[in-house]
């Protein structure tokens, strides 16, 4: 096909861009294999010449349960965020309630509160409600990272949905809820996936909430697993980096799959047009 041949240069360029972007990630992988005595070698080794698996041995032995918890927390956060944000954004964008402007404004400010302060506030609330050090508690806390973002993004996208589409649904006799469910949501599939991605990624990489609200917990996310390698006087950098590498593998796989789905959605939509 002519089209594919013409896009080869794009693939090439894309690979170059990606390689450039991911260089720090490569460097992290490089460090994860490096022996303690080579870590600050000047000039540095470009490849793990005297590689060690010490870091990975430690990680694979200890980090399994942490990964599982992170996965649960990440997916839980996505679900909670969507449930709260999508209907809210729909009503903001299409039903235009009184005080809608104020609400988006508050959402914006909400994101400005420093994480540490949020965490301190949650600590007090969680302690009295008994959800301190629990996974559901952490999910709720992590969702606060994503909900304001999600509402704003959904609103921006949903306000772009053509009014005729909604009207058509209304003419068919659908109420606000039905319209939302069978018209708005399917049309906003792309933004749903975008929001889910971010909610997942934020929950996955959250450190502040986890360390304040779940450090005494029985089930902790991977970001706290790193503490195994941070002593009071010393840090085991190869193991810290190895944890990050191991932690990013399942998440990367998930991302690639999710992205394929976005692409599929787009083409499907195009065919329908």
């Amino acid at each position: 096909m002519r089209a594919t041949r013409r896009t080869w240069w794009r693939t090439g360029l894309g690979v170059v861009f990606t390689a450039f972007m991911l260089f720090p990630v490569y460097w992290m992988i490089n460090v994860s294999f490096t022996r303690d005595q080579d870590m600050r070698k000047s000039p540095p080794y470009w490849f793990p010449v005297h590689g060690t698996l010490e870091g990975y041995r430690a990680v694979l032995e200890q980090q399994g349960p942490y990964l599982a918890t992170s996965l649960v927390v990440g997916l839980g956060t996505v679900a909670l965020t969507l449930v709260i944000a999508a209907p809210a954004a729909y009503s903001l964008a299409k039903l235009r309630p009184r005080g809608g402007g104020v609400l988006s404004f508050v959402l914006l400010i909400a994101q400005m509160i420093p994480g540490v302060i949020m965490a301190m506030g949650f600590y007090a609330i969680y302690l009295s409600t008994g959800v301190l050090n629990t996974v559901p508690g952490l999910i709720v806390a992590d969702s606060t990272l994503a909900v304001p973002f999600a509402v704003l993004i959904f609103t921006a996208f949903m306000s772009g949905i053509p009014e005729e589409l909604m009207q058509a649904a209304r003419v068919d006799g659908a109420g606000a809820v039905r319209t939302f469910w069978s018209v708005v949501l399917p049309v906003s599939r792309n933004s749903v996936i975008t929001v889910s991605l971010f909610a997942f990624l934020w929950a996955w990489s959250d450190f502040v909430f986890a360390s304040t609200l779940d450090q005494g917990g029985g089930r902790q996310p991977i970001t706290l697993g790193i503490y195994h390698y941070i002593g009071n006087n010393n840090q085991q950098w190869n193991a810290i980096m190895a944890t990050a590498v191991v932690a990013s593998i399942p998440a990367t796989v998930l991302l690639v799959i999710a992205q394929r789905y976005v692409a599929a959605g787009v083409t499907a939509g195009a065919v329908k047009d």
């Binding site: 303690d36 080579d38 002593g231 006087n233 010393n234 950098w237």
Partner: peptide
């Protein structure tokens, strides 16, 4: 202090100011 220790551990440095806890390393 960890970074400084890593520098000393490369073998290029004559001296490194560090603590008791580095003995094992």
């Amino acid at each position: 202090q960890t970074t400084s220790w890593q520098e000393f551990a490369t073998g290029d440095f004559a001296f490194g100011e560090n603590g008791t806890w580095q003995l094992a390393n």
